[in-house]
Design a protein around this nucleic acid. Sequence first.
DNA 1: CTAGCATGAGCAAACGATTGATCACGCAGG
DNA 2: CCTGCGTGATCAATCGTTTGCTCATGCTAG
Lengths: 337, 337
Amino acid sequence: MATLSDVAARAGVSVSAVSRVLSDAPSARVSEDTRRRIQDAAQELGYRPNFAARALKFSRTNVVGLIVPDLTNAIFTELMRGVEDEAHRRGYMVLLARAEGMPEGEESIPRLIGEGRVDGVLVQVGDHMRPHDLQKLVEGTLPVVFVNSIHPQRAGSVVLEDEAGMRLATEHLIGLGHTRIAFIGGLPSSDTSERREQGFRAAMADAGHAVDDDHLTRLGYDPRSGGAALARLAALEPRPTAVVVANVNAAHGALLEARRLGLRVPEDLSLVAMHDAWTAENAWPPLTTVRMPLYELGRAAMAAIFDRITSGAVSDVTVSEPAPVLMVRESTSPPPA
Amino acid sequence: MATLSDVAARAGVSVSAVSRVLSDAPSARVSEDTRRRIQDAAQELGYRPNFAARALKFSRTNVVGLIVPDLTNAIFTELMRGVEDEAHRRGYMVLLARAEGMPEGEESIPRLIGEGRVDGVLVQVGDHMRPHDLQKLVEGTLPVVFVNSIHPQRAGSVVLEDEAGMRLATEHLIGLGHTRIAFIGGLPSSDTSERREQGFRAAMADAGHAVDDDHLTRLGYDPRSGGAALARLAALEPRPTAVVVANVNAAHGALLEARRLGLRVPEDLSLVAMHDAWTAENAWPPLTTVRMPLYELGRAAMAAIFDRITSGAVSDVTVSEPAPVLMVRESTSPPPA
DNA sequence: CTAGCATGAGCAAACGATTGATCACGCAGG
DNA sequence: CCTGCGTGATCAATCGTTTGCTCATGCTAG
């Protein structure tokens, strides 16, 4: 790789002259002739500034870390796309770190944040993220933005309109004539879970339908938990005729469990889920969902961490554009007679 | 962030002593007492070596780039997991770059490889990767390993047993009694496509079944192309009773198209696909697939690029462990009478 | 009594880029 | 003849680590 001094040698000038010309420094008092010789030399050598040297000089890497609980999560890919696009637009690159599946003694997060590899971190908190690592993140001096969860301390956050989304899902079922509607939520510790539950409750209250405590489960967003939640709900007497699932992954588990129990969807049980991953349309039956602006969430997150890095501004953003959209497919229908 | 000189000041010694002690240099002639003072100081300050400084000194970043065509591809996540795990084991981090969707004038790949950000690159060639960028990659001096495609020039590669996998899928259909079996392949330019087609042909030849040219399509691995391919096959007279799909994503598209055409799967048409993404079990009906060792492919790719970086060894590896496994679900059955 | 050596530690250059300070030179004004 | 100044370029320090070399000290052997 060509360095500044290679270019300088070829152009017959000093390193500093080259640096000033190539970075368009206003303090560059350079003759037209010299300027052209430098530019030609740089061109011919294919000069590109060394990343490490710049990072060392400026204490700035133009890289942000993205910490996600689980790569196989379908909603993550949309988020990631948004982050990537916005990062690219701002001259940043994304260093991916997975929080899941790391052996206990491992230290991938300290390595990420402690060695000056990144200028900031985007964190999507998963159910299984170690509080220890989280603590380290928030305590440190590194800019952090939480995606889809609000952290009490001094970190910024970017969230979706969870409540509005769940309200939309619930109103769809109510509109179909359901009254005994159950809810499959995330773990109580997750704060999206709380907001989503509130959306559900609000819609039910507006319609004048009671919400039985038995009808609320809070087992988690993953397929396995969704299955367990559905099993619990299916055992109730009388059985709910519809279920609002707070996450599409959990909905897949619920669907599987329903099939196992011999419940037909949607004839015996309607199912509507939050987040429109592409897996939803390939489900059996295709899932009715509420599409949330995950791509825009990713972009907003990257924009927020950028602001945080460059100006220190801490902000809590709610991404409301585009608004949640109901994607009606085949997992919902009017209740059985 | 604490630096070496912070630690040195606190321990009352020189920077070099600290460096030698903390990096366990054999040339460190240091008294027991000094050693302990240094270690304590480092501990208390939470010292971590600065990434940029090391990278500058060694011309080594311990980061590899991973270039993928499309993040939303379900099989990519398994691959990525493998890459990540192996990278982590070897003290590497992964910088993700998406090749898809970049505006024409953009230069994310040159930025990745030209500025010394990464020690090597893993490339999964997609159908829409710009040959221009590819060329740059191969021409450069940076270690490159191609994943799932063999490049004629001096780059290494890591591939799966595509032929064996397709053979397994085809034999499953043959075992069920099918004889008019069609094939939905990738673009002719992709070299996995060729290997997979050969596996299909070999299995058909072994069983003594003819392969009509009409029964071979090569439209691509994505859902849309899979749908188009199925539409073409469904119009044939007599219609094939089963289809081997060279990629699970294409199979989803084919499934959708079959439904649209009023063909029942598997009653009217059996479908078996390569790659067991988790989307397969959530399809309608759940797809019979051949599970390939994608996670291990990712690990092997990372191992190969590591060897390439550290020893310069160029190797072409075929990942055959674990062997392809047939996952029988509900998209295949004996042919209609 | 001094040369020789082992021990423990610091000095300084290097990696590549940036940038404030400095220098050489030609020329005009006093 | 000397001072002052504008122009065009270079010098040198800096970021944090690493590492070959040097240095000071104390001890032993001749």
